[in-house]
Design a protein around this nucleic acid. Structure first.
Lengths: 149, 149
DNA sequence: GTAGCTGCAAATTCTTTGCAGTTGT
DNA sequence: ACAACTGCAAAGAATTTGCAGCTAC
């Protein structure tokens, strides 16, 4: 049976409060504000458990490490900002794309990822009424690149 | 200046002959038929060099390690077979998807991945005239899962 | 002859796992 | 009590890199 540890609550909370899918390290950072001694291993273990439990779902984007969000809206897609690298949900869907497949291929599902600028990182020219650029640059610049360097 | 080593030729050749994007390990497997002593490190170094040179391009699918293909067709998408895990090019495109983005977000590009059954792995019921199942099961079942297990 | 390349092994990054001690129920 | 959970550290997997020797030009 599942237990209600401080760590698990903090992890649940961090993801529930986020308005976007989080990386394990981001979950740790947020959860450590409640439980400072929490380890990354515990985050991974709980993410896995919560996914199996059906409470969370992994969000995989091309070339990115998996992020996690609460299971809510069924079928949806994602947007990644090229400036701050953060990922956001997109509730729209292009619909049936089976016509795109080559002869003889059967399409069962699809993934769509949009790239561009998020609201906070909008380009100067793109917004007449814009926040000071210093604000935009103050964001979570999570430069996530898969693996080594 | 770039040199023409046996290894580099074998790598180039392996990718050019493949009809789909290959994983580094698949490139090694193919290239070792020409240069048996080739190491995986050499494959990675050459893939990187050939990408920087503009001869190859990485193909990133959600939750998958990067594959590589020759730069040819400009904008295109990919299909991954849920049976054999192989990835194929899709030359169609859904077109402009900027209407999908939330208010204030600017869309500059998109990635689309289709999932289903490739021609070789078509479901029995889906094809009247079908190859013997033994043939389909003889394929490259590259079970690529990111990271450990 | 020498710069670029190669194989090998060690290092790095992300993720999982073993273990001994802690804690929720 | 005792099973589930935690922190820590080691293991694992994909990728990069340092180094000494090899080789194309």
């Amino acid at each position: 049976m599942e237990r209600n540890t401080r760590q698990r609550s903090a992890i649940r909370d961090a993801i529930a409060k986020a308005d976007r899918p989080l990386l394990p390290q981001e979950v740790l950072d947020a959860a450590q504000q409640l439980v400072p001694a929490m380890s990354l291993g515990t985050v991974y273990r709980n993410l896995k458990a919560l996914v199996e439990e059906g409470e969370l779902q992994p969000v995989n984007l091309p070339g990115e490490n998996p992020r996690f969000e609460v299971v809510g809206h069924q079928h949806h897609h994602h947007f990644q900002c090229r400036q701050c690298q953060r990922v956001f949900d997109v509730h729209a869907c292009p619909g049936d794309l089976s016509h795109m497949a080559p002869q003889g291929f059967t399409v069962e599902d699809h993934d769509v990822t949009l790239y561009g600028r998020c609201k906070d990182c909008a380009l100067p020219a793109a917004k007449a009424t814009r926040r000071k650029s210093s604000e935009a640059d103050t964001h979570n610049h999570t430069h996530t690149h898969r693996h080594v360097g």
